[in-house]
Design a protein around this nucleic acid. Structure first.
Length: 554
RNA sequence: GCACCAGUAGCUUAGUUGGAUAGAGUGUUCGGCUACGAACCGGAAGGUCGGGGGUUCGAAUCCCUCCUGGUGCACCA
C-alpha cells in the first residue's frame, strides 16, 4: 500500500518538478487519516515556500488522476498531508494480497546468498537460556530471508576445540575414565569442576592449555576423546534444537576450521606480525590487535573465526555472512571484520554483526540459578510446560505434540517481541504467562478464526465495508508489507512479532462484535469470510517466520 | 582509565532515517458470557520519555554535558 501511495505521489512530484522521492508512513493519528506524508516540511525549506501551499499543490496533483482511491485527502495545519483510503482501494488491495503467493509484498530485486552463524554452543557445557536466544533469533532471520527470496546456509558452528575441551580431557585423565565410560552427565559435571580448578591452580591451568595444544596438533589419544565428547554432546544439542524447531544446514565447528589455518595464515601473511612472542594482526589504533597464534603455539577463537571465514568464502562464495551472537562479543567481531576487510578478502558491508542483548534475571544481572549457573534449557522447557499445564485442567488432556507447540509459542513470542539488540529481563513467571501479549493469545486467535471458517465456504469480497471493527481489520491486513520489509532490512524479527500481535487484537475485536454464523445477509457474510480467511493465511505464514507452529486445539 | 550499549507508567516493554495528543502487556479499577470459544472484549486511572542545556516551525529520537546501570578492553570462548 505504502509503495503504491508513493508511486502515485511520485507522479505528482514530477509534474511539480520536485526531484525528491516521496515518503509515506502509517498515520500516527488513526482518527484523522490512514496514511500520512510529511514531505511538505522539507520541500518547503528547499523551495522556500509555505508547507501548506506545497501540500495543497501535491494534493491537487493526486486528485487529478486518483480521486476515486481516496475517501479524503487533506492538508492539515503546519503541513501534514493526510490520506483516508476509499473502500474501493482497500478492497482492491485486499484482493491483490489474497491472490498473490506472498501477499503482494515487494521483493528485493537481488537474490543473494547469506551465510548464517547462529548456534555456537560449547560442547563442554549444556545449552542454556542464552543459546535459546541465538537459536530463536537466528532461525527467524533465516526464515525471513528465505521468505524474501534470499538463499541461506546456516551453520551451527560448535565451540568444540578450545581450552574447554582441554579441561574436560584433563578431568577424564585424572578420573582414569575410558572412552566407553563417558556420558553426558559426566561431561556436564566435569567441565565446571576443572574450569573452577584452573582458576585457583596455575599448574592445572598450564596442563589444560598443554592438552589443548596437543589436541590441536593431532595427539591421537586426545583426538579419540574429543570425537566421543563431540558425539555425545552433539546428540544432546540436536535434541534441544529439534524441540525448538531450529535447524542447521551444516554442523561444523571450530575444529573443522583447523584444516584451513595454514591457508588462512598464507592469506594474512603480509599483515601478521610478531609481538610479545605471539603472532598478531594489527587492526587499527583504536582496537587491540587480533591474536592469531598464542606464544605457546596454540590457536584461539579469533584464528578459527578467520579460518572459518576463509573456508566459507572459498567453498560457498556467500554475498553476506551474518553472525547472530551476544553483544558482548562485539569487540571480537570488530577485530575479525577489520582483519578480513583490510586485506580486501571481504568487504565490511558484507559482514554483519547482529548482536543481541544479554538475558538478565529479575535483579538485572545475567540470568543465573541459585547454584550460580545459567539455567539449562531442559529445565526451562519443563518449567514452562508445568506452568502451562497448571493454568487449566483441560491443558493436561492435550496431545503432547500440541503442548510442545504451545510451550514453543510461549518462549519464542516472549523472546521475539523484545528488540533484538537490548538486554532483557527474564522472569519465568512472566515469560510463561498465557494471557495478554503472549504466544497462546496469538494461537487462540488463529484457532478460533479457524473454527469459524470451518463451517463457511470462501466466496467473493464485496465492495462494502460494514463497520469500524471491519475497517480496522482490513487496514491492519494491508499493513503487512511495512512490517515484513522492516524485519527483513533490519534483520529484526521483533517487527513481525509486533505485527502478528496487532493483527490478532483487531481480529479479536472484529469477531467479538461481528458474528458470522446465522448471518443472513449473503454479501456481508461472504466478505467477512474472505477477510478472516486472508487474516489467518497471513497469521500462519508470519507465525512460521517467527518459528511458531499452530496446534490443532487450544 | 578508555571504549561500546542502555535508562520510557508500579513492573516488563514498543517506538530513535525528527512530525500532530508517547503505544502496548501486566498490575489496580469499573463493565460485559442465554452469544461462531471469556486464554476474550469495552472503559478508567497511571508518563518531568534519567537530569540539565542546545539545534529546529517541530525532539523519546540529533548535538553537548552530567548522573545511574551494564558490558568489553593481548594470548578464554
Amino acid at each position: 500500500m505504502i509503495s503504491y501511495l508513493q508511486e502515485i505521489l511520485e507522479e505528482g512530484y514530477k509534474n511539480l518538478n520536485i526531484e525528491e522521492k516521496p515518503n509515506v508512513v502509517l498515520s500516527n493519528r488513526p482518527e484523522l487519516c490512514d496514511y500520512q506524508c510529511d514531505d511538505a516540511f522539507k520541500l518547503a525549506k528547499k523551495y522556500h515556500k509555505n508547507p501548506v501551499e506545497i501540500g495543497q499543490a501535491i494534493v491537487f496533483e493526486v486528485r487529478k488522476n486518483h480521486a476515486d482511491l481516496f475517501k479524503e485527502i487533506s492538508v492539515v495545519k503546519p503541513g501534514f498531508i493526510n490520506f483516508t483510503l476509499s473502500d474501493f482501494m482497500i478492497n482492491k488491495f485486499l484482493k491483490n494480497m489474497m491472490q498473490s503467493e506472498k501477499f503482494a509484498i515487494p521483493m528485493p530485486e537481488k537474490q543473494d546468498l547469506y551465510f548464517l552463524d547462529y548456534g555456537g554452543p560449547n560442547i563442554a557445557k549444556p545449552l542454556h537460556v542464552g543459546h535459546m536466544r541465538t537459536a530463536i533469533v537466528g532461525e527467524s532471520i533465516k526464515r525471513i530471508l528465505n521468505f524474501m527470496g534470499q538463499e541461506t546456509i546456516a551453520d551451527v558452528h560448535l565451540g568444540d576445540y578450545g581450552l574447554q575441551i582441554g579441561q574436560v580431557i584433563y578431568g577424564i585423565l585424572q578420573d582414569g575414565k575410558k572412552v566407553e565410560d563417558l556420558t553426558l552427565e559426566y561431561l556436564e559435571e566435569t567441565y565446571p569442576k576443572i574450569s573452577a580448578l584452573c582458576k585457583e591452580n596455575e599448574e592445572v591451568k598450564k596442563k589444560c592449555e598443554e592438552i589443548t595444544k596437543e589436541l590441536q596438533e593431532g595427539n591421537p589419544k586426545y583426538q579419540e576423546y574429543f570425537k566421543v565428547i563431540r558425539e555425545i554432546s552433539g546428540n544432546d544439542i540436536k535434541r534441544l534444537y529439534q524441540y525448538l524447531n531450529v535447524s542447521f544446514d551444516l554442523w561444523e565447528g571450530e575444529s573443522d576450521a583447523y584444516a584451513y589455518i595454514p591457508k588462512t595464515e598464507e592469506l594474512f601473511k603480509d599483515v601478521i606480525i610478531e609481538s610479545e612472542g605471539a603472532k598478531v594482526i594489527p587492526v587499527g589504533e583504536d582496537l587491540p590487535p587480533l591474536i592469531f597464534q598464542k606464544s605457546n603455539g596454540a590457536y584461539l577463537y579469533a584464528t578459527t573465526d578467520l579460518a572459518t571465514i576463509y573456508e566459507r568464502v572459498t567453498k560457498y562464495h556467500p554475498d553476506h555472512i551474518l553472525y547472530i551472537v551476544d553483544n558482548r562479543q562485539s569487540l571480537h567481531f570488530k577485530q575479525v571484520f577489520r582483519a578480513v576487510s583490510q586485506i580486501g578478502f571481504m568487504k565490511m558491508e558484507q559482514l554483519e554483526f547482529l548482536g543481541y542483548g544479554t538475558v538478565n534475571g529479575t535483579d538485572g544481572k545475567p540470568y543465573k540459578t541459585r547454584s550460580g549457573d545459567a539455567p539449562k534449557l531442559d529445565s526451562l522447557f519443563q518449567n514452562t510446560l508445568d506452568l502451562f499445564l497448571s493454568k487449566k485442567e483441560e491443558n493436561k488432556k492435550m496431545e503432547k505434540e500440541d503442548q510442545d507447540k504451545i510451550v514453543n509459542s510461549i518462549l519464542k513470542f516472549a523472546d521475539l517481541q523484545n528488540n533484538r539488540e537490548k538486554d532483557y529481563i527474564f522472569d519465568i513467571q512472566k515469560f510463561s504467562s498465557v494471557v495478554g501479549k503472549t504466544g497462546p493469545y496469538i494461537l487462540y486467535t488463529y484457532v478460533r478464526i479457524q473454527k469459524i471458517l470451518e463451517k463457511e465456504t470462501l466466496k467473493e469480497l464485496s465492495e462494502t465495508i460494514y463497520n469500524e471493527e471491519d475497517r480496522n481489520l482490513r487496514l491492519k491486513v494491508l499493513e503487512l508489507p511495512i512490517y515484513i520489509t522492516k524485519a527483513y532490512e533490519e534483520r529484526m524479527p521483533s517487527y513481525i512479532a509486533e505485527y502478528v500481535y496487532q493483527l490478532c487484537t483487531v481480529a479479536n475485536a472484529f469477531y467479538q462484535k461481528n458474528h458470522i454464523q446465522n448471518l443472513e445477509e449473503e454479501e456481508k457474510r461472504n466478505s467477512w469470510v474472505y477477510l478472516l480467511t486472508l487474516t489467518n493465511k497471513i497469521l500462519k505464514e508470519m507465525l512460521f517466520l517467527i518459528g511458531i507452529t499452530i496446534p490443532k486445539f487450544m
